[in-house]
Protein backbone atom coordinates (compact mmCIF):
# COMPACT_ATOMS: atom_id res chain seq x y z
CA UNK A 1 0.00 0.00 0.00
CA UNK A 2 1.08 3.55 -0.58
CA UNK A 3 1.86 5.85 2.32
CA UNK A 4 -0.83 8.06 0.83
CA UNK A 5 -3.41 5.58 2.13
CA UNK A 6 -2.35 6.48 5.65
CA UNK A 7 -3.47 10.08 5.20
CA UNK A 8 -6.55 10.52 7.38
CA UNK A 9 -8.49 12.70 4.98
CA UNK A 10 -6.79 15.32 2.86
CA UNK A 11 -3.26 16.35 1.98
CA UNK A 12 -2.58 20.06 1.75
CA UNK A 13 0.24 21.54 -0.23
CA UNK A 14 1.11 25.15 0.40
CA UNK A 15 3.53 26.99 -1.82
CA UNK A 16 4.27 30.06 -3.87
CA UNK A 17 3.85 29.68 -7.60
CA UNK A 18 5.50 32.21 -9.88
CA UNK A 19 2.79 33.24 -12.35
CA UNK A 20 0.84 36.13 -13.78
CA UNK A 21 -2.34 36.00 -11.75
CA UNK A 22 -4.78 34.14 -9.56
CA UNK A 23 -6.47 32.22 -12.37
CA UNK A 24 -3.16 31.06 -13.81
CA UNK A 25 -1.95 30.20 -10.31
CA UNK A 26 -5.01 28.06 -9.65
CA UNK A 27 -4.67 26.31 -12.99
CA UNK A 28 -1.00 25.58 -12.38
CA UNK A 29 -1.73 24.48 -8.82
CA UNK A 30 -4.36 21.99 -9.91
CA UNK A 31 -2.01 20.69 -12.60
CA UNK A 32 0.62 20.19 -9.93
CA UNK A 33 -1.81 18.18 -7.81
CA UNK A 34 -2.68 16.06 -10.85
CA UNK A 35 1.02 15.49 -11.51
CA UNK A 36 1.39 14.34 -7.90
CA UNK A 37 -1.41 11.87 -8.43
CA UNK A 38 -4.18 13.57 -6.46
CA UNK A 39 -7.38 13.01 -8.37
CA UNK A 40 -9.74 14.79 -5.98
CA UNK A 41 -7.97 18.14 -5.71
CA UNK A 42 -9.07 21.68 -5.03
CA UNK A 43 -7.69 25.14 -4.36
CA UNK A 44 -8.36 26.11 -0.75
CA UNK A 45 -6.72 29.50 -0.91
CA UNK A 46 -4.99 31.55 -3.58
CA UNK A 47 -3.82 35.12 -3.34
CA UNK A 48 -1.70 37.14 -5.75
CA UNK A 49 1.26 39.01 -4.37
CA UNK A 50 4.32 40.24 -6.25
CA UNK A 51 5.69 37.68 -8.66
CA UNK A 52 2.99 35.07 -8.22
CA UNK A 53 0.45 33.51 -5.89
CA UNK A 54 0.56 32.09 -2.41
CA UNK A 55 -1.58 29.03 -2.87
CA UNK A 56 -2.88 26.23 -0.71
CA UNK A 57 -3.95 23.13 -2.58
CA UNK A 58 -5.78 20.16 -1.19
CA UNK A 59 -5.96 16.61 -2.40
CA UNK A 60 -8.66 14.61 -0.67
CA UNK A 61 -7.53 11.04 -0.21
CA UNK A 62 -10.58 9.99 1.76
CA UNK A 63 -13.79 11.91 1.93
CA UNK A 64 -16.09 10.90 4.79
CA UNK A 65 -17.94 7.67 4.09
CA UNK A 66 -15.18 6.37 1.79
CA UNK A 67 -13.55 3.01 2.38
CA UNK A 68 -10.53 3.95 4.45
CA UNK A 69 -7.37 1.85 4.40
CA UNK A 70 -5.40 3.53 7.21
CA UNK A 71 -4.73 0.45 9.28
CA UNK A 72 -5.48 -2.27 6.80
CA UNK A 73 -1.94 -2.93 5.62
CA UNK A 74 1.63 -1.97 6.32
CA UNK A 75 3.00 0.77 4.08
CA UNK A 76 5.94 -0.45 2.01
CA UNK A 77 9.32 0.06 3.62
CA UNK A 78 11.25 2.77 1.92
CA UNK A 79 14.77 1.89 0.93
CA UNK A 80 17.71 4.17 1.56
Amino acid sequence: MSVRDRILDGCDLETFIVCGGVEEGKRLGLRLMAELGFQDADVVFCEKGGPGVRIRLRGYVYRPSAEYRWDKEEPEDHEV
Binding site: D12, D42, V44, F45, R58, R63
Partner: peptide, 13 residues
Protein backbone atom coordinates in the same frame (compact mmCIF):
# COMPACT_ATOMS: atom_id res chain seq x y z
CA UNK B 1 -9.09 26.75 9.84
CA UNK B 2 -11.32 25.47 7.02
CA UNK B 3 -14.18 27.63 8.33
CA UNK B 4 -14.32 29.81 5.24
CA UNK B 5 -13.56 26.99 2.78
CA UNK B 6 -16.66 25.46 1.26
CA UNK B 7 -15.10 23.16 -1.33
CA UNK B 8 -15.00 19.99 0.74
CA UNK B 9 -15.00 18.40 4.17
CA UNK B 10 -12.94 19.85 7.03
CA UNK B 11 -9.64 18.03 7.33
CA UNK B 12 -7.89 16.86 10.47
CA UNK B 13 -4.94 19.26 10.14
Amino acid sequence: SDEAYAGGPITAP
